[in-house]
Structure formats: C-alpha cells, structure tokens
Design a protein around this nucleic acid. Sequence first.
DNA 1: TTAAAACCTATTATAGCAGTATGTTGGTTG
DNA 2: CAACCAACATACTGCTATAATAGGTTTTAA
Lengths: 139, 139
Amino acid sequence: MLVSTKGRYALRILLELAQYDRGRYMPLPLIAEKQDISEKYLESIVSLLVKGGLVEGVRGKGGGYRLRRALQDYSVGEILRLTEGSLAPVACLDGDANVCPRADQCHTLPMWTKLEGLINSYLDSVTLEDLLDVPAAEV
Amino acid sequence: MLVSTKGRYALRILLELAQYDRGRYMPLPLIAEKQDISEKYLESIVSLLVKGGLVEGVRGKGGGYRLRRALQDYSVGEILRLTEGSLAPVACLDGDANVCPRADQCHTLPMWTKLEGLINSYLDSVTLEDLLDVPAAEV
DNA sequence: TTAAAACCTATTATAGCAGTATGTTGGTTG
DNA sequence: CAACCAACATACTGCTATAATAGGTTTTAA
C-alpha cells in the first residue's frame, strides 16, 4: 500500500482542524471523538505534524492544535511525504540507501522514476482547500 | 510500498524470458541464476504467471518457461495487478470488501480514486517491449 | 530408468503497521 | 497553591503481509 493509515489519518486531522473555529485550539480528545480514531494513535500522528511545522500545539487548559497556514498552502503531497516518509512506489527508490547494484542495467528503473514523478506531482497539485471544496460523495 | 518484490521480480522474469531464445523453454534454475534470485522464491512467482496465462510452463527434461504473447501485448499494469493483487494506493480502494462506512462523507476518496486511475493508466500504457527498448541506465 | 524440470503444500523469519500503556511537562483556573 | 487539562515523550505489544525456505510429487525427454 502506498499510503497507510498514518497518512490518511493525518489528512483527516488536518481537514478536521480546517473546519474548526480557526482562531481557537482544538484539543486532541475532540478530534479523536469526531473522527472516531483512537486518541493515543492520533497523538503519535499529530506529533509528526507539529514537528513538521504544519500544525501548532499549545499545552494546558484551553490548549490543543491549530493550523499554521492557509488551506491552499498545504499540499497533500507534503503532508503524505511527511507522515509516510516517502511516496516511492518501489523500494528501489526509497531513500538513497537503497542504491541497487543492478541499477545501471535495470530496464525498469526509468519507469519507476516516472511513476514516482507522476504520483508526487499529482499529490502536490492537490491542496487541503481543494479537498474541502469537493463535495464529499462526488465520484 | 505500492509494488513489492513479487511484482518487481515478475517483471524481471518476463524480461529475462523476452531476451531468451523465443522458440525454446527457459528452465527456472537458469532464470534464478541470471537474475540472482532464490530459485524457490521465483518458483512461487512464476506459478502466478502461469496461472494468469502470461507464461507457458512445460515439465520434464528440456522443459521450462516461455512467453505466450508478443512483447507489446504485455502491459506492466496487467503483470503487476496479477502478482500484487491490486495497485490501489490506499486500503479504502482495495477490493470491494473495504467499503468504508465514511465513504459518503469522505473528502479524500475522489482524490484516491483519481490517483489510482493515474497509476493504472500509466502502467497500462507501458509494455514489455517499451521496457526493453529503453536502454538501461537512461534516467 | 535416470535425471531434469515443473508443480504443489506447508512452514518460518522478519519487519512494519497499528495500536496501547504509562508517565512527564507545561499552562489555566478556582 | 492545588487541581485539572492538555500536549509531549517513551516504551511496549499484537498482528499481518512479505519474503523467503523446505521437502516433497508428478511429468517428460534422453
């Protein structure tokens, strides 16, 4: 699977924050309840978003999480790469550690590279704003 | 990861067969040796290709495997869907069993569907012939 | 009749995903 | 200052799929 729950949940968290009163901080228990996802698991994901600078966290009573940017400044590609680590379709392209010894004689590498490019450029072209615009249940 | 070793090895097997004397049958031990992949693991993958009708297997001395079609009649998409089961980028789209209860209110589903379409149509557009045409180490 | 080869079934090792548990730090409010 | 809320941190667990491995049985040509 290219995108696991981690990335999908990250999107759901951000979309939830996007629909919350933008001036206030939304506490995690509320996000978890609304999205019906385990609070503890969510926590590990939000933490990635905070470290990545996508979201601001504030402690103590009245605290919670808040978006740091305008919706159109979040691309799905960025969000998924942050949470998933990479959107490489094959292990050969994942990180620079995996330099295949057969790379120079590989007939498929150019195809994988192109596919990775397609995936990234499509996901980079979609923003949180686009996602909210699309009425759910369209397809 | 969208495509595991199973799918990648399947492509390598087919490309190896493509470069072998097309009139003869290529025995598995030879494929394994040339591709430097465990013979036993390869076996389980070739077996998928035979069952899927992509490759013909003949037993006994002098036997082995042979392609059944012209190179341009094998699309990478078909090969990968056969060996991987599906090219769905997210679990939500994998099989009909995973109908998400939130599907009708999901803001991301249309995006995933479109991404799956992109992936499939690109991979369907590439054939074994294309792969062999491209000089390795191009990218 | 021997050897080469595909074919078949079961088992195992490993790793990553998904989730849980427990505790610590920081900030607000009565 | 005490209690509580909430983010932050770390460690652990169960599960599942991948990636193999092992040991056979059948088929066929020489």
